[in-house]
Computed example of a mutant assay.
Amino acid sequence: MLAARLNVKTRSLAVEEVPTPEPGPGQVRVRVAAAGVCLSDVHLIDGSLSPLFLTGDVVTLGHEVSGTVDALGPGVTAPAEGQRVLLQAGEERAGVVYTRGVDYDGGWAQYALAAADTVVPIPDSLPFEQAAILPDAVSTPWAAIATTGEVRPAEAVGVWGAGGLGAHGVQLLRLAGAAPIIAVDPLPAARDRALAFGADFAFDPADAELPRRVRQANGGRGLAAAFDFAGVAAVREQAVACLAAHGRLVLVGLTDRPLTITDGTAFSYFQQQVRGHYGSEPRHLTELVNLVAHGRIDFARSITDVLPLTAAQEAVDRLIRKEGDPIRLVLRP
């Protein structure tokens, strides 16, 4: 089969022929129909992210995967062959969470293996391209909003970074009843997209009056919650300046830069909080599939383009250059 393989030592990506894997005990083999291209994949390629548990130097990328069950391993009785599914972005082994496409082979391939208990059935009404992005691009902001951020209806919320995660964050905050939703992004196209996706206001972070504008948009009050989807150090301090008393800053975007809070006294006096967030839990994916199946939310606008697996490097380059202002590029084997 064809697979897009990354050598984590040389950081070289190549689409090559590899043996089609056979499912072992407790595993299923999935014929991949769609696989998302994520900034995490870019970070693996550029070396800013490295696998913690990978055996060897080469891995098939891709942690956002959907397809059909092709074969069952010994002892597996469900899901049935031919079932349409998506795959959770990782699996737990001996109490440790391994990430698909990072610590073990992922879905930038014609076939992928998965532990049977990490396979989530999807309805016929959910296109594979949209299903593929749920395991990270959608479930990560959903978990950040519903669980880590504990957003409640009518709370004022800010979204810094309206790219892939942030754009979905805006949609999901709208679903959760947040009001108002204030998006902050340096790109005019991203701000326009945030408004189209349900934000009530969209501001430029370069505006020196941003904290005042945020409060003005919320009747003179600060934000109950602010989400950093950008992973930019300067964003975090700016977001803190926009928080209300007891406001919480949720860190979703990843960065290796230090977290600084200039006015620590005010931060403590107003009893504000910083909450780290990473990924999602299996229940978040199940919730999302249910919400999509019942027509509560739609992600058709999130699929910027679909490319063949052989164009994996082109997809990565387009994401790096932000060509076409992509929300999600998807590979189709």
Rank of each mutant, 00 (worst) to 15 (best):
G67E: 02
T118K: 12
A194Y: 12
D103S: 09
L87W: 01
A144G: 14
A167E: 04
C242L: 08
F197S: 06
S40A: 15
G56Q: 04
Y104A: 06
T310I: 04
A234W: 02
V102L: 14
R213Y: 01
H277K: 07
L61F: 10
V184Q: 04
Q313V: 14
G107T: 08
W108D: 06
L210W: 09
R332I: 00
G26P: 10
L134Y: 01
A137F: 08
S50Q: 15
L319M: 13
S12K: 15
L2N: 15
V252C: 12
Q313W: 01
E281P: 00
S125Q: 11
L172P: 02
G222W: 04
E155R: 03
V28S: 09
P127Y: 10
P211I: 05
V119E: 04
V274S: 01
L254H: 11
G47D: 09
Q83P: 00
N218M: 05
A3Y: 07
T147Y: 05
G73Y: 07
A266F: 08
A94Y: 02
L254K: 10
P180F: 07
F128N: 07
Y98D: 01
I181S: 09
D70Y: 05
C242D: 02
L331I: 08
A199W: 05
R29H: 05
V306Q: 07
D200E: 12
S302K: 01
P21S: 11
G106C: 02
T310D: 13
V15I: 09
T77A: 15
L309I: 09
A34G: 05
P79F: 06
F229D: 03
D105C: 06
P282L: 05
R275P: 00
L13Q: 02
R5T: 12
A202G: 08
A206Q: 13
V96H: 04
T147G: 13
V274L: 12
I45A: 12
P21C: 12
R248Y: 00
L49C: 00
T262P: 00
R93P: 01
F201C: 11
A206W: 00
L331C: 07
E314R: 13
A137K: 06
V69I: 13
P282V: 05
A3M: 09
L13N: 02
A94S: 15
R328I: 09
A71C: 03
K9P: 00
M1E: 05
P123H: 05
V18W: 01
V18F: 02
T148S: 15
G161K: 09
V240L: 13
I327R: 10
G95M: 11
D298P: 02
S280L: 12
A196G: 13
P51Y: 07
P153A: 11
G73H: 06
T118V: 14
F229M: 14
A71G: 06
Q238T: 15
D228V: 12
A183S: 05
G295W: 11
A226D: 03
L251G: 03
A146V: 12
D228Y: 10
K9T: 14
G219R: 07
G166P: 07
L254E: 12
S302F: 03
P121E: 07
V232S: 09
V330K: 05
V97H: 09
V292D: 01
V240N: 04
L173Q: 06
F128A: 15
L13D: 03
V274D: 04
A226Q: 06
R332G: 03
A217Q: 03
D185T: 07
D228K: 11
G220T: 08
L210T: 11
T286M: 13
E17Y: 01
Q272E: 14
A176N: 00
N290W: 13
R257C: 00
